[in-house]
Protein backbone atom coordinates (compact mmCIF):
# COMPACT_ATOMS: atom_id res chain seq x y z
CA UNK A 1 0.00 0.00 0.00
CA UNK A 2 1.37 3.41 -0.94
CA UNK A 3 2.24 6.01 1.67
CA UNK A 4 -0.54 8.26 0.39
CA UNK A 5 -3.16 5.50 0.66
CA UNK A 6 -1.98 4.69 4.18
CA UNK A 7 -2.18 8.34 5.19
CA UNK A 8 -5.72 8.63 3.84
CA UNK A 9 -6.76 5.45 5.67
CA UNK A 10 -5.17 6.64 8.92
CA UNK A 11 -6.88 10.03 8.64
CA UNK A 12 -10.26 8.43 7.88
CA UNK A 13 -9.90 6.11 10.90
CA UNK A 14 -8.92 9.05 13.10
CA UNK A 15 -11.90 11.08 11.86
CA UNK A 16 -14.40 8.23 12.40
CA UNK A 17 -12.95 7.60 15.88
CA UNK A 18 -13.03 11.32 16.68
CA UNK A 19 -16.67 11.51 15.64
CA UNK A 20 -17.38 8.65 18.06
CA UNK A 21 -15.97 10.81 20.87
CA UNK A 22 -18.26 13.66 19.79
CA UNK A 23 -21.26 11.30 19.57
CA UNK A 24 -20.49 10.02 23.09
CA UNK A 25 -23.15 7.38 23.57
CA UNK A 26 -23.38 4.25 21.43
CA UNK A 27 -27.16 4.39 21.71
CA UNK A 28 -29.15 6.01 18.90
CA UNK A 29 -30.42 9.49 19.84
CA UNK A 30 -34.11 9.74 20.64
CA UNK A 31 -36.36 10.49 17.70
CA UNK A 32 -38.16 13.84 17.79
CA UNK A 33 -41.41 12.14 18.85
CA UNK A 34 -39.87 9.99 21.60
CA UNK A 35 -39.39 10.53 25.32
CA UNK A 36 -36.96 8.61 27.56
CA UNK A 37 -38.38 6.60 30.45
CA UNK A 38 -36.39 8.61 33.01
CA UNK A 39 -37.68 11.90 31.58
CA UNK A 40 -41.27 10.65 31.66
CA UNK A 41 -40.73 9.54 35.28
CA UNK A 42 -39.56 13.06 36.09
CA UNK A 43 -42.67 14.56 34.50
CA UNK A 44 -44.92 12.18 36.43
CA UNK A 45 -43.10 12.89 39.68
CA UNK A 46 -43.43 16.63 39.32
CA UNK A 47 -47.11 16.04 38.45
CA UNK A 48 -46.79 17.87 35.18
CA UNK A 49 -50.09 19.39 34.19
CA UNK A 50 -52.05 18.22 31.16
CA UNK A 51 -49.92 15.14 30.69
CA UNK A 52 -51.82 12.11 29.44
CA UNK A 53 -50.24 8.63 29.43
CA UNK A 54 -51.86 6.01 27.20
CA UNK A 55 -51.23 2.26 27.27
CA UNK A 56 -51.44 0.70 23.78
CA UNK A 57 -51.38 -2.91 25.04
CA UNK A 58 -54.18 -5.43 25.56
CA UNK A 59 -56.63 -5.17 28.47
CA UNK A 60 -55.04 -8.20 30.18
CA UNK A 61 -51.55 -6.72 29.93
CA UNK A 62 -52.86 -3.38 31.25
CA UNK A 63 -54.56 -5.06 34.20
CA UNK A 64 -51.37 -6.97 35.00
CA UNK A 65 -49.44 -3.71 35.38
CA UNK A 66 -49.16 -0.28 33.84
CA UNK A 67 -47.52 3.10 34.27
CA UNK A 68 -48.85 5.34 37.08
CA UNK A 69 -51.91 7.23 35.95
CA UNK A 70 -52.00 5.54 32.55
CA UNK A 71 -55.25 4.82 30.74
CA UNK A 72 -55.88 2.28 28.04
CA UNK A 73 -55.60 3.71 24.55
CA UNK A 74 -58.59 1.68 23.38
CA UNK A 75 -60.79 3.19 26.13
CA UNK A 76 -59.67 6.80 25.68
CA UNK A 77 -59.76 9.57 23.20
CA UNK A 78 -56.47 11.43 22.95
CA UNK A 79 -58.37 14.66 22.82
CA UNK A 80 -59.95 13.97 26.26
CA UNK A 81 -57.35 16.03 28.03
CA UNK A 82 -53.71 16.89 27.96
CA UNK A 83 -51.34 19.05 26.02
CA UNK A 84 -48.88 16.21 25.90
CA UNK A 85 -49.84 12.61 25.22
CA UNK A 86 -47.33 9.82 25.84
CA UNK A 87 -48.22 6.44 24.37
CA UNK A 88 -46.39 3.22 25.21
CA UNK A 89 -46.42 -0.56 24.71
CA UNK A 90 -44.21 -3.41 25.92
CA UNK A 91 -41.45 -2.21 23.58
CA UNK A 92 -41.40 0.72 21.17
CA UNK A 93 -44.87 1.72 19.98
CA UNK A 94 -45.39 1.49 16.26
CA UNK A 95 -45.07 4.95 14.68
CA UNK A 96 -48.46 4.38 13.00
CA UNK A 97 -50.21 4.35 16.40
CA UNK A 98 -48.72 7.74 17.26
CA UNK A 99 -49.61 9.09 13.81
CA UNK A 100 -53.24 7.99 14.27
CA UNK A 101 -53.34 9.80 17.62
CA UNK A 102 -51.94 12.95 16.06
CA UNK A 103 -54.71 12.93 13.49
CA UNK A 104 -57.31 12.79 16.29
CA UNK A 105 -55.79 15.38 18.58
CA UNK A 106 -53.99 18.69 18.60
CA UNK A 107 -51.88 17.49 21.55
CA UNK A 108 -48.16 16.80 21.25
CA UNK A 109 -47.99 13.01 20.92
CA UNK A 110 -44.81 11.27 22.12
CA UNK A 111 -43.79 7.61 22.18
CA UNK A 112 -42.07 6.14 25.26
CA UNK A 113 -38.65 5.03 24.01
CA UNK A 114 -38.15 1.33 24.77
CA UNK A 115 -41.69 1.01 26.16
CA UNK A 116 -42.55 -0.67 29.44
CA UNK A 117 -39.30 -2.64 29.32
CA UNK A 118 -37.27 0.58 29.45
CA UNK A 119 -39.52 1.85 32.25
CA UNK A 120 -38.79 -1.29 34.27
CA UNK A 121 -35.04 -1.34 33.52
CA UNK A 122 -34.30 2.37 33.86
CA UNK A 123 -36.88 3.62 36.37
CA UNK A 124 -38.19 0.80 38.54
CA UNK A 125 -35.21 -1.53 38.77
CA UNK A 126 -31.97 0.36 38.08
CA UNK A 127 -28.80 -1.60 38.80
CA UNK A 128 -25.46 -0.39 40.13
CA UNK A 129 -22.31 -2.46 39.69
CA UNK A 130 -20.58 -3.61 42.86
CA UNK A 131 -17.30 -2.06 41.71
CA UNK A 132 -18.85 1.28 40.67
CA UNK A 133 -16.83 4.48 41.13
CA UNK A 134 -17.79 7.26 43.57
CA UNK A 135 -19.16 9.32 40.67
CA UNK A 136 -21.27 6.42 39.42
CA UNK A 137 -22.64 5.86 42.96
CA UNK A 138 -23.51 9.52 43.30
CA UNK A 139 -25.42 9.54 40.00
CA UNK A 140 -27.14 6.29 40.93
CA UNK A 141 -28.59 7.86 44.09
CA UNK A 142 -30.82 10.13 42.00
CA UNK A 143 -32.00 7.13 39.96
CA UNK A 144 -32.56 5.12 43.15
CA UNK A 145 -34.68 7.91 44.65
CA UNK A 146 -36.80 8.01 41.48
CA UNK A 147 -37.14 4.24 41.57
CA UNK A 148 -38.32 4.24 45.20
CA UNK A 149 -40.80 7.03 44.46
CA UNK A 150 -42.54 4.75 41.94
CA UNK A 151 -42.33 1.69 44.22
CA UNK A 152 -39.38 0.14 42.43
CA UNK A 153 -36.33 -1.59 43.85
CA UNK A 154 -32.92 -0.13 43.01
CA UNK A 155 -30.30 -2.82 43.28
CA UNK A 156 -26.60 -2.71 44.04
CA UNK A 157 -24.81 -5.81 42.84
CA UNK A 158 -22.18 -7.65 44.83
CA UNK A 159 -18.67 -7.41 43.35
CA UNK A 160 -18.48 -9.91 40.51
CA UNK A 161 -22.21 -10.41 40.24
CA UNK A 162 -23.46 -10.34 36.64
CA UNK A 163 -25.02 -6.97 35.82
CA UNK A 164 -28.02 -8.46 34.06
CA UNK A 165 -26.54 -7.91 30.59
CA UNK A 166 -27.84 -10.39 28.09
CA UNK A 167 -25.68 -13.47 28.13
CA UNK A 168 -27.63 -15.70 25.84
CA UNK A 169 -24.66 -17.32 24.22
CA UNK A 170 -21.09 -18.10 24.99
CA UNK A 171 -18.35 -16.73 22.82
CA UNK A 172 -14.82 -15.43 22.76
Amino acid sequence: MSLRARSVLAFATFAIGGLAAVAGSSQPPLAGDEVAAVDLAGWLRERREKLCVLDARSADAFDAGHLPGARRLADSAASDDGDTVVVYADRDVDAGVADALRRQSAARVLRLHGGLRAWNDEVLFPVLRGDASAGQRQRFEARAALSRYFGGTPRQLDPGEAAGRTRSRRGC
Partner: peptide, 9 residues
Protein backbone atom coordinates in the same frame (compact mmCIF):
# COMPACT_ATOMS: atom_id res chain seq x y z
CA UNK B 1 -18.48 4.83 25.04
CA UNK B 2 -17.39 7.13 22.22
CA UNK B 3 -14.47 8.49 24.27
CA UNK B 4 -13.13 4.96 24.74
CA UNK B 5 -13.55 4.27 21.02
CA UNK B 6 -11.59 7.43 20.13
CA UNK B 7 -8.86 6.60 22.66
CA UNK B 8 -8.41 3.09 21.24
CA UNK B 9 -8.23 4.52 17.69
Amino acid sequence: YGAVVAAVV
